[in-house]
Structure formats: C-alpha cells, structure tokens
Nucleic acid binder design. Structure first.
Lengths: 224, 224
DNA sequence: TGTACATCAGTGAACGCGCGTTCACTGATGTAC
DNA sequence: TGTACATCAGTGAACGCGCGTTCACTGATGTAC
C-alpha cells in the first residue's frame, strides 16, 4: 500500500524530516514510531500525538494515512504477523528436513521471536484488537502465521512423530505452551529468574516436555 | 487493615450508599469496584474517578484510603493473590493425598482460577505492577501463592514422580506452561477454538504433556 | 522546455472531554469526663 | 445519661494536562498540453 514519494528535497539528500513538507513515507514511519512507543508504554497507553511528534509531523497528519488511532495499531499488528511469518520461514529453511527437527525449530522460533520483539507481540495479541474481523489484512496475516505451526504438526503426524488426532487440537496445545511461556517472559513476570541466560535455559526443557506430551509411536512414548 | 465502621444509617438498614456520609467500608468497596472496572476496560484504561463514581462517592474520597491510583491497583492485585492462595488451598484439601494427584490438582486449579477470574489475573500480572518491591504486601502475597506450586513439586520429587533437579527450574517450566495457557485463554486469543467446552478440553492434554515432561523414574519415562 | 492546474500531503487552530491530584472545607463519629 | 471535643471520612471547586478528532487552509508534486 505504501508508495514512497521521492521529493525534491529527498533527492537532494536532505536529512531532517522537518526540512521537507512531504515526508516521503509517513505511513511506514508512523507504524515504526507506534511500535517503538508501544515498547515504552504498552499497546493501550501509547498515543497518536506522540507518534506524530516523534516523526516531526503535526498531530493530525496521521489521519491522511489512517482512519483512526486504532487503525494505526492494527497496521502495527499486521506488520508484526508478516514479519513473524518471514522469521518462521527463514528458520525453517535453515533446519534439517525431517519433520521432528522442523517442529522443534518452529517452537524455538516462536519463543525467540517473542523474546526479541516483545512490543510487536504485545500488539499482535492485544485485547484491543481481539476482534480481527474489522481489519481483514490483520486477520489474514495472523492466520497465515498460525498455519505454519499447524502444517508442520501435520507433517509430524504423517511421520509418526506426533500422535494421531485432530491436528487443530494438538496445534492448540502446542501453541498454548510456547505462546504462554513467551508471554510470561515478555511481561517480565519471571523476575525471580531474571537473567536472560536463565530464561533461555527454560526453553529447551519446555520444548522437550511439549514434544514428549504430543509424541507419537515413532517417539517411543511409554504406555499409559 | 479495613476496619468496618458501623454507621447509624447502616444500623438502621439504609441501602443506598449516598444516603450516608460515612460509607462504612470504602476501602473494600473501592477494591471491588476497581476490579470490576478492570474487567471492563483493562488494568491500564480503568480510572479512579469512575471507580468512585460507581460507589457513589466523590472522586477524591479514595485518597483517604489510597495514596494514588496505582496504590489502589496494587491493593487489587494483592487481594487477588490472597484469594488465589485460598483457592489453591481449598482444592488441595479436597485432593487425594498422593503427591502426583496433588500436583495435578495444583495445575488444574491454576487454570481454573484464571478462567474464572480473568480480570484479577490481569491485574496480578499487570506490567504496571511488575516492580512489586514498592508494594511489600503485594510482593508477599505473590510469593506465598507461588510457594504452593513449588512445595508440591518438591513433594513429587521426593516421591520419585518428578525427576530430580533444581526445583525452582522445574517449577518455572510448570508455571510457564499453565500460566501461559491461562493467559492465552483470558486474552481471548483462542477465538478459533471458541466454545468454553473446547477450551476446557485443552486443559487435560496440556497437563498430561507437562507431567510427562517433568516426570521422574516412578512415572516410567522412556529412555531418551 | 514551459506553464496551468488538479491532486495529494501536510499545517495550525480549535473542540470538548475526562483524567489524577490538591486544597480548604464540613459533617459524622466515638470517647473522656 | 449528657456534653465537649478531637479525630476521622467525606465534600466541592479548581488546577493543569494531554488526548483524539474535526475543520478550513496551504504548500508541494506530477502531469497534460
């Protein structure tokens, strides 16, 4: 949607945004600024005016690009899901080809993305945007990201590494676990295990636990 | 701290709070009203003035009982943790006495409390109150609740039902899983598994997965 | 190459609003005598 | 049992603030001729 406009000033190499009347790519700049603000104040407390202020544009300029404050927030969330999907794809490309390895990498990627992009995750799963039907682009981006987890899980079922059964339910179990842990970390609730190293040490035990729990015959699960 | 004052009007059985000058137990009423408001608007967007308005008291009356808006929020969180601890105790009393059953019940209780008290959990783990050192009562209440999970886990280790190792780390794994799932549910992110029945159906698989993962020799874990 | 002009992307002032907090106050309460 | 009075728990007006959104506007841009 964003169509960069090359301004004369920009062609001349002007740096300070306020030197020019046309910003060039205000839409993108707003999304970035809003994300940064969310990182500082959270997805409820950030303000449209402050985002505009940071870019050096008047507080009503955003309305040229977004219908409302919420619409800008939805754009931040959508961009977050798209980046997340790209991140998952990149990790998958680098993983060994067997289904179990790929599933393991999916889980690791989820937690890692959450750790490195807490603000983005906060917006992506913000209560304010819980009704995604009002933002079709966001809804689509979210579904596309989730599909990756589910698809890998089905692959594992076919390989006998994950037990048979409704893949949606299994995906839900898996997702609950990794997402849940991620949220805990990013809400700084693990203050009693404070170092990043300690937190990272939790990831593999959790994944092992999870794999054990959803494991199929090829994973030699014990009789129950 | 709350010392109920029986007013003449109250003794006479007056109902409407606004009929009397002294409320009687404004402190408690404020905590309740704030919790209700958080349920509607979230732990950031609720307002002190609206809480006072609902009780039928002027917007500055709360300052008689709390130093600030945040102090009231902290009181809500503290009360949440205390109620949570009571809830865990009640469930534990009703559980079979073997360690594994008790651990299972702890997990179930956690998820159930979260499901039934989403607003309270939102405040208890709100980012705004992440620095609990400023509210010693809150800090103590939180630690007391967490201790229950850890203690049961240690019991399980002694019974050989959970594997040996740093109990704090194991508690962290377990806590991450149940808390994480709970948060997912209460943030309404499981919209694609919408019915309460479907959500409840996730609980046991998740607990089974978790127990499998932290299981000790007495749980017949497979060789790895 | 030069110019007229429609279109687009900003500006600046103003709106109404509700917030958290402070202040000096007053009405109700319980207790000492 | 009655009364004086210190204490406590409210009131009401006011503060300064920053917010989201609307409005009529103007400056910059690119294109048709």
């Amino acid at each position: 949607v964003a169509k960069p406009v090359r301004t004369a000033a920009r062609r001349r190499g002007a740096r300070k945004p306020r030197d020019v009347y046309h910003h060039g790519d205000l839409r993108r700049a707003l999304v970035d600024a809003a994300l940064a603000l969310v990182a500082e104040r959270g997805p409820v407390a950030w303000t449209l005016r402050e985002a505009a202020r940071r870019i050096g544009v008047t507080h009503n300029a955003p309305y040229r690009h977004f219908a409302s404050r919420e619409a800008l927030l939805a754009a931040v969330a959508e961009e977050g899901f798209r980046e997340f999907a790209r991140f998952l794809d990149a990790a998958d490309d680098a993983a060994p080809r067997d289904p179990l390895s790929r599933l393991r990498v999916r889980f690791r990627s989820y937690v890692r993305f959450a750790r490195d992009n807490p603000a983005a995750l906060g917006v992506m799963f913000s209560h304010e945007l819980a009704d995604r039907s009002r933002y079709p682009g966001l809804q689509e981006a979210a579904q596309e990201a989730f599909a990756r987890l589910r698809d890998t899980l089905v692959l594992c079922q076919q390989g006998g590494v994950v037990r048979a059964g409704d893949p949606d339910l299994l995906a839900l179990v898996a997702w609950s676990t990794v997402h849940g842990f991620s949220m805990l970390v990013l809400e700084e609730q693990l203050s009693w295990a404070p170092s990043e190293h300690e937190r990272d040490a939790l990831v593999e035990p959790i994944i092992a636990t999870l794999l054990q729990g959803i494991g199929g015959p090829a994973l030699e699960r014990p009789g129950r």
